[in-house]
Design a protein around this nucleic acid. Sequence first.
DNA 1: CGAACCATGTAATTGGTTACATGATTGT
DNA 2: ACAATCATGTAACCAATTACATGGTTCG
Lengths: 189, 189
Amino acid sequence: MSLEHALLGFLSYSPMTGYELKQHFDQSIYHFWNANLSQIYPALSRMKEEGLLTMEVEHQEDRPNRKVYTITDAGREALQRWLVTPLPPGQVREAWLIQIFFAHFQSNDEIVSLLEARMDAMRARLAVCRTEIQAAIDQNAAQSGVERASQLWQITLDYGIAHYETQLAWLEQTLARVRKLPPLTPPKP
Amino acid sequence: MSLEHALLGFLSYSPMTGYELKQHFDQSIYHFWNANLSQIYPALSRMKEEGLLTMEVEHQEDRPNRKVYTITDAGREALQRWLVTPLPPGQVREAWLIQIFFAHFQSNDEIVSLLEARMDAMRARLAVCRTEIQAAIDQNAAQSGVERASQLWQITLDYGIAHYETQLAWLEQTLARVRKLPPLTPPKP
DNA sequence: CGAACCATGTAATTGGTTACATGATTGT
DNA sequence: ACAATCATGTAACCAATTACATGGTTCG
């Protein structure tokens, strides 16, 4: 359902093709939601069948025809309704924590390696938020008339930044903690 | 894959039935990974076929027979290998942030409501971590011989606590920010 | 008297990822 | 020469959720 509503959201700005929608996903909400083209195209067809969108074909000679989707009144209503409906919070799923949980037969160094690998990944993501996405927001904010939208975008980015900062803080702290853990009494089998 | 390895992890403690495994999921790692019985039972059969587990039937008269699964050497090796393999960090998926992102036509009050609903949910989860799961860990730690395991469990719980605290801090801060947002210039259509 | 516990599963559906397929144009 | 951009899709697969099915025992 979320994918569909994100598509409606972008199409509420202006009519677009599936390809362009994908670019919007990549450029603005990638840090908390992503979608593949192979997911977007069938979703658009479905939504057209449901009357949430209309489609017009723009003929092109050299490349495949562009299919430009436009949101309908029914689509706007569906979006509107969804936007004010609180969603049940999803189940947390952090597979790497399973590794920590069952690491009692691993050496402290092995656990440290896992944590360090994760730190690298989290640092990289934090950097993307701070540079690329921030730049996109700033550029967008410069064009006036969209201040409210820019501020909401910034709010979601700040969520991402806070999230990754927490991850890193926790990892740092856990690293110190694991280094001090008494080593395993029975050595590895 | 993670489900399978979590099952191997619990079975590395002692042989168990699918039903008992589910209880372990619910009591110790629910805050970062969960599984349904309808997922666990077929997974166990599969893993038995793959030679990671063996199974023995305990006959019972009044209830369905218990199928007790035991980890094999191959299972221990597979677990061991997985436990030291860094996992690629998963894509963040926070559907409710889509709602914030596209809320520029919603009133500030409507956005505030969404945030407050989420705050309630996050407070509830934080409370579960601080009370129920903490109690389970403390109880487990009291039985000596498992200190290392208890400490790793505590580490994963502290992750959960830090996560929910960050959520709440961000929500609090965002609430204040949204209340100050200049209201929408064009009133709702 | 109904809910929760014990104990097993299958089937259907949903949502997402990966692989496959096509093909011209533009930039390095 | 090779990768990236534009532009569309289909098909297979995987993981997780929900619904369905069965049925006795114990607790409030």
